[in-house]
Amino acid sequence: MNRALKATLSGVLLAFVWAMPCYAAVDSGDLAGKRVDLSEAAKPDGFVKISIVRGDLIVEGWDKDEVSLVGTLDEKTEQFIFDVSGRDTRIIVKIPSNNTSWCCNEGSNLRIMVPKGSQVDVATVSTEVRLTDIRGGLDMSGVSGDVRIQKVSERLRVRNVSGEITVHDVDAYARIKTVSGEIDARSIKGGGAFHTVSGEIVLRDVTDEIDVESVSGDIEVIGRNISLARGHSVSGDIDLEIELIDDALVEFDSVSGSVRLRLDGKLNHKFDLETGSGSIRNRITDDKPKKSKYIRDEQLRFTVGEGDGQVNVSTRSGDISVSK
């Protein structure tokens, strides 16, 4: 009986100890505007979901098998969740769905450390975000806050509406979309797709495959070892300075924007350039564009080397320039 009582009490105590993190982590309002400093053991390759509506957020990967959270919660915090359960970690700061509550303060200010191999999913609204050293893949979506990302492997997906997106050192195929925000991506080793509507796209030191699209924003790309480069714009200009592999395919078109293409390294490509009412400048060979007699279009086709690769550029009214 005594033994049974001890066992029961031990069980209750153990259950209380296990329940402690959840109790400390799930709070409904007590921690609003307060400083937090929490940590939990986590799987080295677990899944971490973070949802912070507004404020400043830093997420960094580290070598510890632990998730840590330090900072100040939103003054309007309605619900705060810090929950580690098996492979899954949830960090959520909810504020009331009432626009008057959003007024007049700065939101959360948090720094979260996660195991480097974690896969991280971050959702925000108007939060300034800095994400560094996430090696298990990263998904990020937001509205108006700027996003800065550095050192990401496995996977990168970013969707933002108007905030600027800056990405450095990615070893994965990157998919980045925005409406009016600018995309600035550097050292992207796995290539990627970069789409905007009115924002500019600047890519530096990209390799492999790139797909860029903008309606009215300009596009500027510097890349090497490019196997596929494809892009479209309606009125934005497209500037490319790329080094192609032998059988690379390059396809760019614009309606009224100009396309300037500078190709580094050895060329072994067929060129097919066409403009409706712009002009073509060829600084690679002595071939001159063919001009129609009665309409203002220009066409130029020529081959450099064996012509294993293909370069197709067309515009409706923009100019085209190709050079080495």
Partner: peptide
């Protein structure tokens, strides 16, 4: 219920 600045930004986009 979003704050006005975010809503304005969304509508602009």
């Amino acid at each position: 219920n979003l704050d006005q600045a975010t809503l304005d930004d969304l509508y602009r986009n």
